[in-house]
């Protein structure tokens, strides 16, 4: 690990002005620092800032940036009104990691692409312009949607997928003041600048994530992975679906493991809403999801897997068994 200076932030303004990389749980950052994928010269510790509360706000909940994943998953309001978020958090990592990992840090976790974490290999995300070895290489976990010629990495998390389905909003404090960004717009597609995972600028600090008022419906988080616990998603789906008189009254879905960001396409819900659930309808929704899907070889299986997983989730939430 390269040497760095360490300071504890006394306030959010301190953290923004510190000209330093923020560290909260550190479970991803320290791992990458050991590999020298991340080499910050200065760290500012935000763990003891007063950003650890989950409070009612605007009919929904405001989750402080350093609320731990385990506390958020166990919060009774989240379990009752935003079960998809609780389920997504519990599907991620291990008990030990969830006790450290924070709401803001989880949004900022980096891809698990093996070329990104191997400093002996070229990687446009780690070293812009050096090339992408995942294209034509070992790409079993890589993106089938929204990738570019520069990068086919996936966003690895679960929490943000549920927050995308719930249409949560990220609150950010920066040198120019505070601003809000929808979770759906927070992460980026790689394009020609895959070194940028999200819209944060260097000095920005996430202070909170707000959830809108709860919406009615049944919640599911389905995560398909190589082992049944403590593994990243190959495909995951966060879904909230409400039925009314045998028809789908509302639906909100987001997908993990498929792209450089949690994938949300409002056209999928538009296909479903007002219709009676059927296998044919679910197929149409999958057609919309996968219209632009492009396999890379070793990850071709994700295309039919995403279709089948969508079928399973919609069947579970609508009661369609035919």
């Amino acid at each position: 690990m390269k040497a760095f200076t360490y300071a504890r932030a006394g306030s959010t303004a301190d953290a923004v002005a510190a000209d330093a990389m923020k560290i909260a749980g550190g479970t991803n950052l320290l791992d990458l620092m050991k590999l020298e994928v991340e080499v910050p010269r200065r760290l500012v510790d935000i763990n003891r800032l007063p950003l650890a509360a989950i409070e009612p706000a605007g009919g929904g909940l405001r989750i402080g940036a350093v609320v731990r994943n385990s506390d958020l998953a166990a919060d009774i309001r989240v379990r009752r009104d935003y079960a998809v978020l609780s389920k997504a958090l519990l599907a991620g990592a291990s008990g030990q990691l969830r006790n450290k990992a924070t709401t803001g840090g989880n949004l900022c976790q980096r891809t698990r692409c093996g070329y990104f974490t191997d400093t002996a290999m070229p990687c446009n995300k780690r070293e812009p312009g050096s090339g992408c070895q995942a294209i034509g290489g070992f790409n079993r976990i890589h993106a089938i949607l929204g990738a570019s010629d520069a990068c086919i990495a996936t966003y690895p998390g679960d929490m943000a997928v549920a927050m995308s389905a719930l249409d949560a909003v990220v609150e950010i404090e920066g040198t120019a003041g505070s601003r809000s960004v929808a979770v759906r717009d927070f992460h980026r597609l790689p394009g020609n600048t895959p070194e940028r995972d999200n819209v944060l600028e260097a000095d920005d600090l996430i202070t909170a994530v707000t959830l809108p008022a709860p919406v009615p419906g049944r919640h599911a988080y389905r995560k398909v992975r190589d082992r049944s616990s403590y593994a990243f998603a190959l495909v995951s789906i966060a879904a909230v679906v409400e039925m009314d008189a045998g028809r789908i009254a509302s639906a909100s879905l987001a997908f993990g493991g498929l792209a450089h960001k949690p994938w949300h396409d409002p056209a999928i819900a538009e296909i479903l809403i007002g219709k009676a659930p059927s296998k044919a309808l679910f197929d149409k929704a999958a057609d919309v999801l996968l219209a632009g899907a492009q396999g890379q070889g070793a990850n071709d299986f994700k295309i039919p897997l995403a279709r089948r997983t969508l079928h399973a989730v919609l069947a579970e939430l609508t009661g369609e068994t035919a």
Binding site: Y6, I23, G26, L30, D45, N47, G95, Q96, L97, N99
Partner: peptide
């Protein structure tokens, strides 16, 4: 009171 991975935490924290 909480279990954590001590390898992924800095002592100074």
């Amino acid at each position: 009171g909480r279990r954590i991975n001590s390898c992924l935490s800095l002592a100074v924290m």
